[in-house]
């Protein structure tokens, strides 16, 4: 199973970026191989609108089965929900710690968008 984390960094020590739509990249952790890949999301830093939707599309394209981020707006939530990808929210902590929390099942799952969308 693979899970995606929004981040500004490039390693497991990097902090979670609590922004979803405008985070520069995703770290995708693979539980089978215990390794990760980095997926660029920087085109959305430039987007004038719809950054959340395209970030969601990027997460879907990585094949991740879950997403860990800080906040999620209504449009991105809708896209991820349609793709069957659950969203977990956390504070800006090192990704290594968050992988542990995910395995222990202590991360909070988002049942609806928690920030207002803007366009």
């Amino acid at each position: 199973m693979k899970i995606a984390f929004s981040t500004e960094g490039e390693s497991l020590e990097s902090l979670l970026d609590t922004r979803f739509g405008r985070c520069p990249r995703f770290l995708v952790w693979n539980f089978e191989t215990n390794s990760f890949t980095l997926v660029d999301n920087s085109q959305n830093l430039q987007a004038t609108q719809g950054a959340g939707i395209q970030s969601a599309q990027n997460v879907i394209n990585t094949g991740a089965e879950a997403l860990v981020t800080g906040h999620c707006g209504p449009k991105a939530f809708k896209v991820l929900q349609a793709a069957g990808i659950p969203i977990y929210v956390a504070e800006s902590l090192p990704i290594r710690e968050l992988i542990d929390s995910f395995e222990k099942g202590t991360l909070l799952q988002l049942k609806e968008a928690d920030v207002e969308g803007h366009w």
């Binding site: 405008r22 987007a47 004038t48 609108q49 803007h118 366009w119």
Partner: peptide, 9 residues
């Protein structure tokens, strides 16, 4: 220009 809020952010 379109003031989309991006420059504000």
């Amino acid at each position: 220009a379109e003031n989309s809020g991006k420059l504000v952010s």
